[in-house]
Nucleic acid binder design. Structure first.
Lengths: 151, 151
DNA sequence: TTTGTTGCAAAACGTTTGCAGCCTC
DNA sequence: GAGGCTGCAAACGTTTTGCAACAAA
């Protein structure tokens, strides 16, 4: 969506959130946000932790703590699809998309569909204020489908 | 959908699956299926395990094993929404629905929407054979929304 | 100065695994 | 009778927690 998104803009969102919730603006939190900003795609807590050790050392506990804050302020979404590990994905700098998940090999692809998006977004509820959503389609990817046929 | 669904019908689906995959038809597996058949709503592995101990004693490992089989043959769907624990839901005897998840209290409601359903089901992919899908809407339920306003 | 946050290590939690014995086929 | 399945307990990997030291406000 926003192609020219700067780190400063994202940082401001986070800063405002921290201020409003009376949380402290620690260097660790911004270092983690920066790391997320600089990288693409899905990630889990541990890989984020590993990748940022060279730039700014934080503990894994702090990573989890900060991820929770980022989830709470809507800068991140959590996907529970990969086995035991939760995957995270930033909500900024991406266009809205859905996920195709292969039930055999676990591979994940993204897709977009305007009709689906419109149908979901136009839905309103009495007594529920929706903020975001996740759509997962399960099935067989090309590779696993052809492997199955060989049998 | 099918209001007059009998256990025998479901059992037959499972039996056929086991036969086709050359898995054994053990009493444990059918006892677990029966327990699922007799109860409504979402459940996790451990609560299923606890609830059935009076009727037929099985180990937790066997519960997990059997849940995997039931997932594989499509009689069950797995929802990863509640914290660390996976929730399961039977696909028989239910109508298709989606989930509203409160990000504050974790409560879950179901809803149906024909337009959304149609939009998703009419979507096809080259190189991906979709078998089922899950849609989760996140937000604030009525209770949590009013609590937030009080602040 | 106060108290939220950090790092560390230990604990907790759901789930998986190894293995000996059992039971379906 | 052979080999898949079971129960049990131990192991696993992710996430959470307790606590003392630290640093943002």
């Amino acid at each position: 969506m926003k192609e020219d998104l700067t780190f400063e803009a994202v940082k401001e969102v986070f800063t405002n959130y921290l201020q409003q919730k009376k949380h402290r603006k620690t260097p660790e939190r911004f270092a983690i946000l920066k790391q997320i900003f600089d990288n693409e795609g899905h990630f889990d807590a541990e890989s984020l932790y590993n990748h940022m050790q060279n730039e700014y050392r934080v503990s894994l506990a702090t990573v989890y703590n900060t991820l929770d804050l980022l989830l709470d302020c809507g800068l991140l979404v959590k996907h529970p699809f990969a086995g035991q590990t939760s995957q995270f994905e930033k909500t900024f700098g991406n266009s809205i998309h859905h996920h195709l998940i292969c039930t055999k090999c676990g591979s994940i692809k993204e897709f977009s569909d305007k009709k689906i998006r419109t149908a979901i977004q136009s839905k309103t509820f009495s007594g529920f204020e929706s903020s975001h959503y996740s759509l997962y389609l399960y099935g067989l990817c090309k590779k696993c489908k052809s492997q199955q046929k060989k049998k």
